[in-house]
Design a protein around this nucleic acid. Structure first.
Lengths: 213, 213
DNA sequence: CTTGACTAGTCATATTGTTGACTATGAACG
DNA sequence: CGTTCATAGTCAACAATATGACTAGTCAAG
């Protein structure tokens, strides 16, 4: 149940419409949570029913009418409660890692391409995050901003996003380089066998074993 | 639908029982995916029905009978297909980040405690990953192992896990230090106001606005 | 003068993931 | 002699996320 809190946290600095929220949560700029528009609209509706956010209609001349939401006192109290409760550990969950885990048994070509693609995406996010950070801290140096600036929360989460994407980029490039080097060194690899075993699933005596470990 | 592929990838180096799988996917050792036992048993059952894995009963004298699963040729083909398909981007999704995003509006005490706790957990995982990596590469140096060793897939994913946890630890410590310093500098902070605005939600003219941005 | 992109939002359904309880057996702790 | 721990697994219910389709208006380019 952290999406609701992520929404509350995102609404803390300034009112946003569902649509604006959706963009913030969708484009990788979501450095602390991710969600699709549908989820956000639904969550905003729930939050409003429970009185944790309130919306006000804004009629626009040129564009469709929108509703800007802000956090109520009850919403702030709920966030406070959430912040004091225990956090569940965070996990990595990544398609590409699953594929690389299987790298010794599948064709390396697509993996190399995907890793490099991913590195480029990470690079773009790194640039974006750096720009955002520069903007947030204004003229100040980072240390100074973190000591004396207002609203450091978003800055800190953006720093985490930056570090994450740097880690991503570095790992992707390293992985691509290694897989490339290896598939050049042993061209018959991939789904096929190396010098030793590979297709034989195991010593496989068909029934009954004991002495596990 | 990546859980099934994560299971297949995990079963590639050696047969495992559902129970063993569950432990591998549960304890942070799951550096490429995470899942609870129930999901894994269910997924194994599905995979077996579809012929992507096959199990064999192993009767043990001292412990309950178990079933060891291995990937079939069809399973390998499915993995191959998966590896060649596009990966969806990976997102950060972390309770603690949500809380830090709200750091300027909630009590910093619990955040500091949680960040330090998290740093300690990350440190433990770092140790674990380093041990696992050392074991995997045997006597070889890292570069040599990655060039010439067998099964580098698990090594690479473990490297990602290591880097992730290092990033986690560093960020948590930095965040804790900064929040600590700030709450020492301005003791009245948290849910309350700083010198400037904070409780006032916005300039808030009650109805109708135009010229957005 | 139509196609496509952007703003703004909704609905229904499917897939995934989480929680909690429950069955068994043997081993070790004290 | 009873409790707890570890292995090995299952079931049902629920919460959270994701997918896909759809409305409706504005603007700009081709």
């Amino acid at each position: 149940m952290a999406l609701r809190h992520a929404v509350l946290a995102a609404l803390l600095d300034g009112e946003l419409s569902g649509y604006q929220l959706a963009k913030a949560f969708d484009v990788g700029v979501a450095n602390f949570w991710h969600a699709l528009p549908q989820q956000l609209y639904a969550e905003l509706a729930r939050l409003e029913r429970e009185g944790l956010v309130a919306g006000r209609q804004v009629v626009q001349e040129t564009r469709p009418t929108k509703r800007l939401f802000h956090v109520t006192d009850a919403g702030l109290a709920e966030l406070e409660r959430f912040a004091a409760a225990a956090s569940k550990p965070s996990f990595i969950r990544d398609d590409l890692l699953v594929k690389v885990q299987a790298a010794d048994h599948v064709d390396a070509g697509p993996l190399i391409r995907q890793a490099e693609e991913r590195a480029a995406i990470a690079e773009a996010k790194i640039d974006l995050f750096r720009r955002i950070l520069r903007k947030m801290r204004g003229g100040l140096g980072e240390e100074e901003f973190l000591r004396t600036g207002g609203r450091v929360g978003p800055y800190l989460t953006c720093l985490r996003g930056l570090a994450f994407e740097e880690g991503n980029r570095d790992w992707c490039l390293r992985t691509a380089a290694i897989l490339r080097e290896r598939s050049a060194a042993m061209p018959g690899e991939g789904t096929a066998a190396m010098t030793r075993e590979a297709t034989a699933p195991a010593p496989r005596n068909p029934e009954v074993a004991h002495a596990e470990r």
